[in-house]
């Protein structure tokens, strides 16, 4: 565990010092902040929901790009530059190497999620009282905002990004090129994000047998990231989400991360450096 910690710390440090992370973080922050100013184009949805959706979208979009690109980059950089050889020549097993890389990236995604959610919470909290006054003046119900719900959503997003990172590391563990790993990982992310559509295709009577089997296999082989889309319910809905459902999703995400890491360790153990 000692080696895992130091590799993770080093990976995190390396990632934080890269321009790509800072660029995406800045882009996400600007997007969230700017959402306040463009609510005039919200096509009728409530302003608070518009800001929240904008923030949730930015968090997932930039977080996913970060998870894929950083996981591939930090992993391949070690192999391309042969720093992995120096590292694995120490009394460090490959499992510790994989776990260290993963936890380093996941820590980075945690910082990203925290900063993005922090700004979103600030924007929502500042805007909500003014919107509440307007609503009261118009005889409409006061818009609901739960910052604790937003906190739970942030944890769920961190878990979702963890799955994306674990999935990427798994693909990277057997990839031979950087580009291949990035493309396959984004394809995996897309499929994981479209699981309900795939489930519909798999269950549709109109689908051919091959399409049904293919869709069915993809729903089984990749995680369902749509389960984590609980932002509006947790943050803007007074009824919230039952604790049991949240616990189930946490369990689901954790199991997927463990499974993907086990697959990665198995693949990487057989990889010759």
């Amino acid at each position: 565990m000692n080696a895992v910690f130091w590799i993770a710390k080093n990976t995190f440090l390396e990632a934080v010092r890269q321009k790509f992370f800072n660029f995406l973080l800045l882009l996400g922050l600007v997007m969230t902040a700017v959402s306040v100013g463009i609510t005039g184009f919200n096509f009728g949805s409530s302003e608070l929901k518009f800001i929240a959706d904008f923030g949730f979208g930015g968090l997932f979009l930039f977080g996913s790009i970060l998870a894929v690109v950083m996981s591939v980059q930090l992993f391949f950089a070690e192999i391309d530059n042969r720093t992995a050889i120096t590292l694995l020549a120490k009394p460090v097993n490959r499992r510790a190497f994989i776990l260290g890389k993963f936890f380093g990236v996941w820590a980075l995604l945690g910082v990203f999620t925290l900063i993005m959610t922090g700004l979103l919470a600030l924007v929502l909290a500042l805007r909500q009282p003014a919107l509440a006054q307007v609503a009261l003046a118009r005889g409409m119900p006061e818009p609901f905002l739960s910052l604790s719900g937003l906190g739970i959503f942030a944890l769920l997003q961190w878990l979702r990004l963890g799955i994306v990172a674990a999935m990427t590391v798994a693909f990277t563990s057997f990839s031979q090129t950087y580009l291949y790993a990035v493309i396959v990982s984004f394809c995996g992310l897309l499929i994981a994000q479209l699981q309900y559509i795939l489930q519909d295709v798999a269950g549709s009577a109109k689908s051919s047998l091959i399409v049904k089997c293919g869709a069915e296999a993809l729903t089984k082989l990749l995680p369902n990231l749509q389960l984590f889309n609980l932002g509006p319910q947790l943050t803007l809905n007074a009824q919230g989400v039952p604790a049991g459902t949240i616990a189930e999703i946490f369990g689901y995400g954790s199991v997927w991360i463990v499974v993907l890491l086990l697959v990665t360790v198995w693949c990487f153990r057989h990889r010759e450096m």
Binding site: E14, R17, R82, T83, I85, T86, A89, K90, P91, V92
Partner: peptide, 19 residues
């Protein structure tokens, strides 16, 4: 892994974490 506890290694043309 235990075999490498007492091993130090310098690779050819080493590259290290530049930061």
């Amino acid at each position: 892994t235990a075999a490498r506890r007492e091993v130090g290694f310098l690779p050819e043309a080493p590259y290290f974490y530049g930061y």
